[in-house]
Nucleic acid binder design. Structure first.
Lengths: 356, 356
DNA sequence: AAAATTTTCGTGTGCGCACACGATAAAAGT
DNA sequence: ACTTTTATCGTGTGCGCACACGAAAATTTT
């Protein structure tokens, strides 16, 4: 690997001048700049990122705003894990990552945490835009202060975000539909169990349902889709009642689709209702879901490499701050099909050369 | 992040002494060593990998021995891609990666390429142990010279390799069986199309078939498995003849399993034989397979993140050489289920903070 | 007790780059 | 022709660490 010093010798200038050309800084005549650029290209010069990182002394702070993961909703543990991993790796780069949490069911906590976030004066922000209106406010502030920000996991358009890191929710629904169609055939009824639209993260959920239904429409399958809207997945008694009611009324229902990470709740209820091995498609590998999948109470889980999602969100933003590398506007996670058989191999940790 | 110099001040010694303690080098009395270790722990000191890499001047050469990818077998392009990526990133670490190829159908080329490989005196080797007997020879040489080596993609035991990077072939077969069982139901006949056992890479193929059959046995499904053994997937006329013959004889065959990356050949033949949308499970996302999947001629592809496989093989070996970090003996790739719907999101490139 | 040896430790340099500072040369102003 | 301004470039230092070299102290040998 050729160094700046060597390039300088070849061009008969000082290393400082080469440095200026590399970074397009002013203070070098067009004539010599051109010559140096030629030599750089000719020798395929690439900055040694390692030396660069060591020399760079600018400090950056990235702030993250994401839902906290209570016992009821374990999903957010995974992106957080990826975020923490990126955080560790970024320390020697002079990048600090600070995390702020909010309650998914309380938009005020979203606003409040954001205020705390602003107080640390971050140079970049990652956020999960759970609440639409409030997000408009927040992003206005960020744009005003010229703080770049990316959306994580939930995609909404027209807010001037640098990037979106997450899954194509609609397509993941389509895939769920395909699996249902392939395994259930044409004439069987299916049931979609979802929560109330006004709850958080609904953007993804509704897109999944749309995608699911879309598959049946486009492929002209003659299945009947039933829907069960629950107010609160946490209320076991009421959920049990609603489920058994709709299943009794529609005994021809054979396949069940739960487009959120609380699939295990439905799976375990069905088990209790005398259906130990239901055909059920759920979302996300949480601990509970993994257990239900292993026990055969869930057939398929659609997953999205949530750990990698968190990691990449930080990584791309850091790259933008450090090297001014603009990420693509959509960084789409894989849409993984997880069964009992391939679960042990899913969502592996990744580590980089710099991690321990 | 606390530095060596700061630790030295706290311990009232010189940075050099701290350095000696960190690397367990001799030349420091147990008393002061203990004191320094205490302070290191207390402040949770971690070496700055970036500064370390810059200071390290030891050069390493990693040699890779893998099958070349002709038009007939595109699979190996993917691991190579990952290897090249790792190679680029490793340059600033003083690690050079050299690749050597052999013909999968010619064990002599395996031996010959290995000789060339030895000539560059690598400090570490990655190899795809396609031929069993010959691999024994090669690994003997490597052990003799104390050159650490890892196996890529094909797993064979008892050769003293540092690590294996690849898929659990048996389990991937089990998963294929599961998908077949789920979609085909209990009474349908299925056909497994494979190549002759003496061909290269047979270890993986036979394990996949074993896994596939195992699923049906364990779950007591009453399907009948038919087998078609082809001498050469490349001979279109003969393959067509064999396929149409077995399908005519067994019209009840509804599902087809092709446990190798040439699934697209069978898929296209079936298309020609008047079965435009067969139920077919194949392996690996090659260009041809991806096309056939998109066209609906293949239902499922089982994939294994081959790009990541190549990358990780190099990465783990480099980490071992650079930092003496022993990888786990099995680095298992995910067993991915790929359909038309999630294909666009599969096997994404990954890049690190140090890549361009 | 002096010399020789070994143990224990400090100092200094360089890895490749970024960037501040100052020097020189060219252009503009007076 | 001289000063002032501006454009152009070179020099030097530090980022955190590894490692070679040598100095000092402790130990052994004579």
């Amino acid at each position: 690997m050729i160094t700046i010093k060597e390039i300088a010798k070849l061009a008969e200038v000082s290393p400082g001048t080469v440095d200026r050309v590399i970074h397009n800084r002013q203070g070098v005549s067009e004539k010599t700049a051109k010559r140096i650029r030629g030599i750089l290209e000719q020798h395929n010069f690439k900055v040694n990122r390692i030396a660069q990182s060591l020399a760079l002394k600018k400090k950056y702070t990235i702030a993250v705003l994401l839902p906290d993961s209570d016992d009821e909703n374990l999903f957010w543990k995974s992106p957080l894990e990826g975020i923490c991993k990126a955080k560790d790796e970024l320390i020697p780069f002079g990048v600090t990552v600070e995390t702020f949490f909010f309650d998914q069911k309380d938009s005020r906590s979203y606003i409040n945490s954001f205020k705390l976030l602003l107080a640390i004066k971050p140079q970049g922000v990652i956020l999960v835009p759970t609440f639409k209106k409030e997000t408009e406010e927040l992003t206005n502030t960020l744009r005003q202060r010229e703080i770049p920000f990316s959306f994580l996991n939930i995609s909404i358009n027209g807010y001037g975000n640098l990037s979106f890191i997450g899954q194509d929710a609609f397509k993941s629904g389509v895939l769920a539909g395909k699996l249902m169609g392939l395994c259930m055939g044409h004439k069987v009824d299916v049931l979609t169990v979802h929560s109330r639209p006004n709850l958080s993260n609904f953007n993804n959920i509704s897109e999944r349902i749309k995608g699911f239904d879309h598959y049946f429409e486009v492929n002209d399958l003659k299945n009947t889709n039933h829907y069960l809207e629950l107010e609160d997945f946490g209320n076991a008694e009421r959920v049990r009642g609603s489920i058994s009611e709709i299943l009794l009324k529609n005994p021809e229902i054979k396949g069940i689709f739960v487009p959120n990470s609380r699939s295990h709740i439905i799976a375990n209820l069905l088990h209790g209702l005398g259906n130990p091995k239901p055909f059920l498609i759920g979302f996300d590998i949480t601990e509970h879901n993994a257990k239900a999948l292993t026990d055969g109470k869930i057939t398929f889980l659609i997953s999205q490499k949530p750990v990698a999602q968190g990691y990449r969100a930080i990584e791309t933003l850091a790259k933008f701050l450090l090297y001014n590398r603009k990420p693509s506007s959509q960084i789409l996670s894989p849409i993984e099909i997880i069964t009992k058989e391939n679960l042990p191999y899913a969502d592996q940790k990744r580590d980089s050369l710099l991690s321990f």
